[in-house]
Design a protein around this nucleic acid. Structure first.
Length: 116
DNA sequence: CTTTTGACTACCT
DNA sequence: GAGGTAGCCAAAA
């Protein structure tokens, strides 16, 4: 399995793949995903791509993507926003005040896990 | 083709 | 310690 994500012509697809690889009960940050695809400074691009997940097949678990502080910054873009926290809690992730609890425990580093 | 915005992050005050 | 500004890349107007 090679699939050099960095070779992806479409930056969106690269992001989608990384997010799709996030294990259940784990979350990651925009910066981590961005770094994994080679866009360390493109953290905003990651979030921007998330807007394209609506209608993308297969479905992308963007609800597992939070900011570096574990805050559900993009929950407002969900429909409904509450569903994002519900999904996270359902996977065993504690979310309090729109913030992921035990972030260091549920944090999933794509670069490290995927050994890119 | 130029300008603005954006689900972020890091540095500076 | 908290808040604000700048930087980053890419897409939409």
């Amino acid at each position: 399995m090679k699939t050099p994500l960095k070779d992806k012509d479409n930056i969106y697809e690269a992001i989608f793949e990384i997010v799709r690889l996030i294990p259940k009960g784990r979350v990651t940050s925009y910066g981590a995903v961005a770094a994994a695809i080679g866009a360390a400074s493109g953290a905003r691009m990651v979030g921007y791509a998330m807007n394209h997940t609506t209608g993308v097949r297969p479905k992308v678990p963007v609800h597992r993507v939070v900011n570096s502080k574990g805050l559900l910054t993009g929950k407002h873009h969900f429909s409904p926003p509450e569903k994002m926290q519900q999904l996270l809690e359902k996977e065993g992730i504690l979310v309090k005040n729109d913030q992921v609890q035990d972030l260091e425990k549920v944090y999933w580093d794509p670069m490290k896990e995927l050994t890119i």
